[in-house]
Amino acid sequence: MQLEEQTITIDGQKIPFQSGQTIMDAALAAKIYIPHLCYHPEFKPHGSCRLCTVMVNGRYESACTMPSVAGQEILNNTKELNENRRALTQMLFVEGNHICPGCPKTGNCQLQAVAYYVGMLSSHYQHFYPYRDLDPSHPDYVVDFNRCILCELCVRASRDVDKKNIFAISGRGIKAHLIINSPSGKLEDTDFAVGDKAAFVCPVGAILRKRTRYTTPIGERLYDKQSIRIVGDSQQLHAGATKYGRK
């Protein structure tokens, strides 16, 4: 069936979309950057980080879950929305223990890159400094819960792609945290493996391959030369992606 050309407008720019696409899908296809952390084109949108909150016909909506409807007037890159995004990023920074200088993901980290994009100069809010553990039990991977931002990409990847259901979120409110579904709670007691989708989707430094770190020199890391607005997600997959499940 030939789809008729339908359009939405983002910050005054008219862009086409196909039925079933969310605002995020349409924006990415048109190379318009809407900041996001929990969104990943290969997975069902989650809408939890709220970075992609945009104004749709005067209402606040998350672009990753909001279906495109012809004629929508959308505001994205505005001072107010970006300030909101900065506050949300700061909240994520104070909620966990994000020590960029010592983190192997630095320079390749989506949270850090978004923080640069939204002009975050300090975490501003009082740090929670939660006590969180590190799970180094697996021979090839280490899970550092300090750096988890609860985007649930690993949860979704392990459940929907790997069919292993290794990760889950437990606890409510500020006590919500990532857990590993095994009797011991340790990654070594799961069938997590190097080739798993869940091993590659973490946008921050919470799930990392052991030993081989800092291999990319400063200056050549993903976000060293260009902003995340141009570079895109740390998984480098979303260029031209349309809807989850297909590219």
Binding site: P101, G102, C103, P104, L134, P136, V142, K210, R211, T212, R213, Y214
Partner: peptide
Amino acid sequence: RPYWEIPV
């Protein structure tokens, strides 16, 4: 902390 992070 993992040892490979230590030098940095």
